[in-house]
Amino acid sequence: MATGGRRGAAAAPLLVAVAALLLGAAGHLYPGEVCPGMDIRNNLTRLHELENCSVIEGHLQILLMFKTRPEDFRDLSFPKLIMITDYLLLFRVYGLESLKDLFPNLTVIRGSRLFFNYALVIFEMVHLKELGLYNLMNITRGSVRIEKNNELCYLATIDWSRILDSVEDNYIVLNKDDNEECGDICPGTAKGKTNCPATVINGQFVERCWTHSHCQKVCPTICKSHGCTAEGLCCHSECLGNCSQPDDPTKCVACRNFYLDGRCVETCPPPYYHFQDWRCVNFSFCQDLHHKCKNSRRQGCHQYVIHNNKCIPECPSGYTMNSSNLLCTPCLGPCPKVCHLLEGEKTIDSVTSAQELRGCTVINGSLIINIRGGNNLAAELEANLGLIEEISGYLKIRRSYALVSLSFFRKLRLIRGETLEIGNYSFYALDNQNLRQLWDWSKHNLTITQGKLFFHYNPKLCLSEIHKMEEVSGTKGRQERNDIALKTNGDQASCENELLKFSYIRTSFDKI
């Protein structure tokens, strides 16, 4: 039985969820670079991206490699990797027998973001014989899940209580170790020597080791999670996991709180800001991140802002960003909400898709409305799209047979046209069989910064309504002859009103 693990408890099935942008060198404390989270699957090609990484700022997932063999891993080693800020997950990587050479110096898994409450997941690794993470000293947050690894031993010899604050939620089941077939031998045991430290858990006094050649490092209890030197002297209180010299914040392997210019500090002093819960960055760093993602459509890219001495992905609820200094300031009234469309555009074809934009005031991208039916549609669209004030790209209304009016965009005031449909149009209306009105132009103002209007096959939309939009939106004169079809717009509506004058002759039985 794995020490510190839980057996036999019912657990939810383990679901495996399925960018080499360097964020800056980590400095003297770390020998390499800070790398983003990685999802490495199918083959070993991307694994080489770990070569210079000291910190993975995010998670590391290595999974679904069915053609790899043990010899493929023999020359692979990433000794610079010290810390993973989120979680480490391995799933069905064939041929991998140990992690001792792959990650010989991995010391800390912070667990800032977890995989279903777990910071370390080893699942269905069919050839893994031992973990071998002999320098792993601290899992700051989260638990361990090690399950269905039929060859995995050296679990009962690990004292997880020396690595985690609590072992109650560890789930370590259905491994070879369960069948008591392992016969784990710690260093020196074969020669009758006791080389590794022994600890007591559940009444068992057991030597602690990761492999037959690597003991588990056990520091004096007084050192807590700070770690200790090879001689057993406690590291500085700002260290986490390990250090090369005692009581020196510049000799830590990793930091308990924050890293700044080669030393570990309790908090980031001005003019620095907390970033990702582990390091200090200056304003320029946060500003660069903001600008890199301002026009990016890459998933996970955030326009970072500053709030409460932190550089964070977005302002919290009730705050909006001051564009001059990136500071989050309290909103006066309802907060603006910028919604970034991942692929640059979004099609609204149902109430469900409209709900995804609920509360958005600025759309960074283009909207395509293609709704053919739905219950209580006008009210639903207004509830979900009615706060949109600005669209950076274009607005396209296409084959939306259920629409009679666009009044559900009740606050839309600006279409920038930074991206144009077919390279020309910022407003595009095609084949809307029941569209009769755009907006009530006596109450609604709309500016279209650039781009043209396109109207074709809107049989109940009168040309007068379209011409009014040209005047109000500032697009009059931009359109070419064929942009607004004269014969297919309003051709099934009563669009022309003329005053009919009647004269009559009164007659009676005795007068003409």
Results as ranks from 00 to 15, higher is better:
198 A>Q: 02
257 N>D: 04
95 G>R: 04
228 C>E: 04
146 I>W: 00
318 G>T: 09
333 G>E: 04
140 T>A: 12
33 E>V: 08
233 L>Q: 11
181 E>N: 10
107 T>I: 15
271 P>L: 06
67 K>V: 10
119 A>G: 11
73 F>L: 07
201 I>L: 13
177 D>W: 08
214 H>L: 06
334 P>F: 09
121 V>D: 00
301 C>L: 07
100 K>L: 09
217 K>S: 10
275 F>C: 02
262 G>C: 03
190 A>T: 10
102 L>R: 00
193 K>M: 13
174 L>R: 11
79 P>A: 08
299 Q>R: 12
154 Y>K: 14
71 E>N: 11
130 E>A: 09
317 S>K: 03
60 L>N: 00
106 L>A: 00
34 V>R: 03
139 I>R: 01
212 H>M: 01
155 L>E: 08
134 Y>E: 06
143 S>T: 09
263 R>Y: 07
31 P>Y: 15
75 D>I: 11
110 R>Q: 12
100 K>F: 11
278 W>E: 04
28 H>T: 12
40 I>Q: 02
295 N>G: 14
267 T>L: 03
82 I>W: 15
75 D>M: 09
162 R>P: 11
205 F>R: 02
102 L>C: 02
273 Y>T: 09
281 V>P: 00
145 R>F: 08
112 S>K: 13
246 P>V: 11
329 T>R: 12
302 H>A: 12
203 G>T: 07
209 C>R: 07
148 K>R: 15
193 K>A: 05
149 N>S: 07
300 G>A: 10
308 N>S: 06
29 L>A: 12
257 N>A: 09
233 L>H: 10
88 L>W: 01
231 E>F: 15
150 N>C: 05
117 N>F: 10
331 C>V: 13
117 N>T: 03
233 L>P: 04
260 L>Q: 01
231 E>W: 04
220 P>Y: 08
270 P>L: 10
222 I>M: 04
263 R>A: 11
276 Q>T: 12
38 M>C: 02
219 C>L: 03
245 Q>N: 13
295 N>E: 06
155 L>H: 13
209 C>L: 02
192 G>M: 13
247 D>M: 03
310 K>L: 11
144 V>I: 12
63 L>H: 12
72 D>V: 07
308 N>M: 09
246 P>L: 11
321 M>R: 06
123 F>I: 15
41 R>F: 15
223 C>K: 02
247 D>W: 05
252 C>L: 00
265 V>N: 02
157 T>G: 07
168 E>D: 05
68 T>W: 13
110 R>A: 06
109 I>C: 00
315 C>S: 07
93 V>T: 06
144 V>E: 01
281 V>L: 03
198 A>E: 15
61 Q>Y: 03
147 E>L: 13
41 R>W: 10
309 N>E: 08
194 T>L: 14
277 D>C: 02
289 L>S: 11
49 E>C: 05
85 T>G: 02
112 S>I: 15
196 C>S: 09
184 D>A: 10
59 H>P: 08
260 L>C: 01
111 G>E: 00
298 R>P: 10
113 R>G: 12
83 M>T: 06
324 S>N: 08
137 M>S: 09
171 Y>H: 12
217 K>C: 02
215 C>N: 14
303 Q>M: 12
139 I>H: 01
288 D>Y: 09
111 G>T: 00
142 G>L: 02
63 L>K: 02
167 V>C: 14
214 H>Q: 12
162 R>F: 08
243 C>S: 01
289 L>H: 15
98 S>R: 02
139 I>G: 01
235 C>S: 00
291 H>R: 09
246 P>S: 15
147 E>Q: 12
225 S>H: 13
